[in-house]
C-alpha cells in the first residue's frame, strides 16, 4: 500500500441514503484547511449543489460496452437471445430482435456467436469527470449516465485524480463524499482511504445498515469514526447505536440534533456552518472535525 505520510483521505459513508453525508461533507469542506474534495457518489452526486463548482477540466470516462443489432443484417434467428444471460435481448411486436442498452452487460458474447455478424458493440462515452474550483478549494467530481454500470471504476478514477492533485499541490486532506450502500462503488471509495467517517441516523434501518457497513470497512483495516445525525429524532435508538459503537470500538465524534436549518442552508446553497455559524449544529460539526483531525494525527 502506498502511504503519503502527510496526506489523509477521509471517506464519508452511511450505508443507508439520506442520513446527511453530503451536508456533513459540505460542512467539513467549509472549515477544513489545505483540503481537496471529492464526490464519490457518481450515481447521484449532490455535493456540487452546495459547493457550486466552476468546472476547469472535463475528461471523458469510457463506460462499459453496449451491444446493438444491425437490423439489416439480422436474420431473426434468436440465437443471441438464447445465449444472453442478462435478459437484455428482446423481440419487438413485429418479431425483430433488439438489445436493451441499459440491460446489456457488455460481455460481447452475442457479438461472437451471431452467425451473420449483425451484432457490434461500442463503448459508451457519455460519462465525464471534472476538476473544478470552489470557494473552499478544488473539487473532483463526475457525472454518470443513468443506467450505467461500472460506477466503481469511475469512483476510483475520481479518487485517484484527487490524490494526484493532493500530492502535487501538497494538500493535507482529501474529503470524499462517498456513495450510499455497501456495494462496489462504496468499496471503491474505501480502498486506500485513511479513515472512514460513518454518518448514522437513529432509525432501525439506519442502525442495521451501519452495522453492515462497519462489517465491510473492518475488512479493510481502516479506522472508523462516526457521527449520529438527527439523534433526537429517536433518542432510544440513538442510545442503542451509541452502545453498539462503543462495543465495536468505533469512536463517536459527535451527535447532531435534528434541525431544519440543514434544509434552509441547502436551499441557500450553503453549508450549515456558513449559513449559521453560531448555531449549535455548527458548533458540533466544528468540534467533530477538530476531533477527527487530532485522532488522525495522533493515530499515526
Amino acid at each position: 500500500m502506498i502511504e503519503y505520510y502527510s496526506m489523509k483521505e477521509i471517506t464519508i459513508l452511511s450505508g443507508k441514503g439520506g442520513t446527511g453525508k453530503t451536508s456533513v461533507t459540505a460542512a467539513f469542506a467549509s472549515i477544513a484547511e489545505h483540503a481537496i474534495f471529492c464526490d464519490g457518489d457518481v450515481d447521484a452526486p449532490d455535493l456540487h449543489l452546495i459547493l457550486a463548482p466552476e468546472i476547469k477540466e472535463t475528461h471523458p470516462f469510457p463506460g462499459g460496452r453496449k451491444a446493438s443489432i444491425n437490423p439489416e443484417l439480422c436474420t431473426d434467428c434468436g440465437l443471441c437471445r438464447d445465449y444472453c444471460r442478462f435478459d437484455a435481448i428482446h423481440q419487438d411486436i413485429s418479431g425483430r430482435y433488439y438489445i436493451h442498452p441499459v440491460q446489456c452487460e457488455g460481455c460481447r458474447l452475442c457479438e461472437r456467436i451471431c452467425p451473420v455478424g449483425a451484432i457490434s458493440s461500442e463503448q459508451s462515452m457519455n460519462n465525464f469527470w471534472f476538476v473544478s474550483d470552489t470557494r473552499f478549494g478544488k473539487l473532483v467530481h463526475a457525472n454518470m449516465q443513468a443506467g450505467e454500470e461500472n460506477s466503481g471504476k469511475l469512483v476510483t478514477t475520481v479518487r485517484n485524480h484527487a490524490r494526484e492533485l493532493a500530492k502535487a499541490e501538497g494538500y493535507r486532506f482529501i474529503i470524499t463524499d462517498g456513495p450510499p450502500g455497501i456495494g462496489c462503488p462504496a468499496i471503491a471509495s474505501i480502498t486506500g482511504s485513511k479513515a472512514v467517517l460513518m454518518i448514522v441516523e437513529p432509525t432501525r434501518s439506519g442502525m442495521h445498515d451501519a452495522i453492515r457497513l462497519a462489517e465491510l470497512v473492518k475488512g479493510f483495516n481502516i479506522p472508523i469514526f462516526s457521527i449520529i445525525n438527527k439523534y433526537d429524532v429517536n433518542e432510544e435508538v440513538a442510545a442503542e447505536i451509541e452502545s453498539w459503537l462503543h462495543s465495536d470500538n468505533i469512536i463517536l465524534l459527535g451527535k447532531i440534533p435534528f434541525n431544519e436549518v440543514v434544509v434552509k442552508a441547502m436551499i441557500e446553497k450553503k453549508s450549515v456552518i456558513e449559513f449559521d455559524p453560531d448555531s449549535e449544529l455548527s458548533y458540533i460539526l466544528r468540534s467533530s472535525w477538530t476531533k477527527l483531525v487530532s485522532e488522525l494525527e495522533n493515530g499515526q
Partner: peptide, 11 residues
Amino acid sequence: APPGTSCPVVA
C-alpha cells in the same frame, strides 16, 4: 427499489 439510477435500479 434501491436508491440511485444505476443498473440495480433498472433491474
